[in-house]
């Protein structure tokens, strides 16, 4: 079995994901409080059910602040080879994706507002059967990866 891909994502990814998770948690909290209030005030739902469901929802959202970003970061690996892009991510389901350069049609880098603040960028590879992403690389590295993939795609004639 081949070894996992060599490179990790940028360490700042964890902080960026944590902030995104905090925003999500805030939204979930507001929704849970609103729905919970309506249910307790106007319906005959047993309070324990409402409290439990609401608590679980908030706890699940809070996991996206801690510890999910660290775990996901630890499991994200990538490697840009001469002839294929090698990606591995996930911890419940470990997904290994191999994209031949010869099948890559074009490459994007994307920087959303949060990513820009942290100097991060996402690389997206497109094939005729869909896209794959390498999230949260340092800006310069993402640009380098993108240019390299594009150059290699030019070299590896489409099959």
């Amino acid at each position: 079995m081949r070894p996992p891909p060599a490179h990790h994502l940028d360490p700042r990814a964890r902080t960026a994901w944590r902030i995104a998770g905090a925003l999500l948690t805030a939204v979930v909290l507001v929704v849970v409080v609103a729905v919970g209030y309506v249910l307790l005030r106007f319906t005959a739902f047993p309070p324990w059910l409402v409290w439990t469901a609401g608590g679980l929802a908030v706890a699940a959202a809070a996991a996206s602040v801690w510890p999910v970003p660290d775990i996901e970061w630890r499991h994200w690996r990538y490697e840009i080879g001469e002839r294929e892009v090698d990606l591995q991510h996930g911890w419940i389901v470990v997904t290994r994706t191999l994209v031949p350069m010869a099948q890559i049609q074009h490459v994007d880098t994307r920087r959303g507002p949060l990513e820009r603040r942290f100097g991060l960028a996402t690389v997206v590879l497109y094939t005729a059967a869909g896209a794959s992403e390498i999230p949260a690389l340092a800006d310069a590295e993402a640009a380098e990866v993108r240019d390299r993939i594009s150059a290699l795609a030019n070299l590896n004639q489409q099959l």
């Binding site: 074009h106 994007d108 920087r111 993108r146 594009s150 795609a153």
Partner: peptide
């Protein structure tokens, strides 16, 4: 391109 999310797309002429 992109207003909020900045995007840079590279299309190899070969493709």
């Amino acid at each position: 391109s992109g207003v909020l999310e900045r995007k840079e797309r590279l299309v190899p002429l070969e493709r």
